[in-house]
Design a protein around this nucleic acid. Structure first.
Lengths: 130, 130
DNA sequence: TTGGTATTGAAAATCATTATCAATACACTG
DNA sequence: CAGTGTATTGATAATGATTTTCAATACCAA
């Protein structure tokens, strides 16, 4: 049976206070700084659980790190600032529709799509362009 | 100055024979099995180069691995079979447009988007549904 | 309170990827 | 073709995120 521990609650709560996506490591440091003695492995486990239950949203940063964020239960996508991490939840019915249609056209079943936009928000000056 | 080595050529060529996305590790094994003595680090370097020059396309698998594939130079997206790796290159002008528009609406600059669909192709029977 | 068992957490184990660095192999020169 | 400067290679060590291990602990139903 699944139990309620202060650790799980701490992770859920800490995730809620974050304005954008955080890595497990990042959330762990954040918790430590707030005086918590929670273990790193526990943070990983709690985040994985939250993500599985749909309470958190997870995605891979372009560098391959797993990032998490508290989210509403509906399916949605993100616009993420590469610099400050500011995240805007965006709807994309248009894209949902496109993904479904495209998968079907090619005979693919049970499609899941990854649709996220990374950029620099208005408050962050873009680094040297390529 | 950039030099032409048989290793770089071997990676380029091996990538060309793959039908879908491959990981650096996978391509390395593949080359080894074909009798090549190429080193793993070299495969990583060659793939990174190819990706940078636009000769290869790279993306992160849902598990966080970097996957590569020989590709046409234009920007495009993918429909990837989770089971056999079959990959279909898809165009998504509609989505390009949407991404650009959405980023702009929220004041984001230099947007890059991640748009890929994972599913099961018609030849692969889907595993137990959730 | 008590017992069965999830859960925890420190440390070790994994795994993909990157850095190191001496040896090697391109490619340009004469 | 030989000589030379330097990019490239590759075995291996290092890194960094994530997972596993496993004994100690804490949850919760009875």
């Amino acid at each position: 049976m699944k139990r309620n521990t202060w650790q799980r609650e701490a992770v859920r709560s800490a995730l809620g206070t974050q304005m954008g996506f955080v890595s497990a490591q990042g959330l762990h440091s954040s918790l430590k700084n707030s005086g918590s003695h929670i273990g790193l492995a526990t943070v990983y486990r709690a985040l994985a659980d939250l993500a599985q239950e749909g309470e958190a949203d997870s995605l891979q940063s372009p560098e391959g790190e797993s990032l998490y964020r508290a989210c509403s239960l509906e399916h949605h996508h993100h616009l993420i600032c590469r610099s400050c991490g500011l995240t805007v939840e965006i709807e994309a019915d248009e894209v949902e529709e496109w993904a479904r249609r495209t998968a079907q056209q090619h005979g693919f079943s049970r499609p899941e799509h990854v649709v996220d936009i990374f950029g620099f928000c208005s408050a962050c000056v873009p680094p040297v362009p390529a």
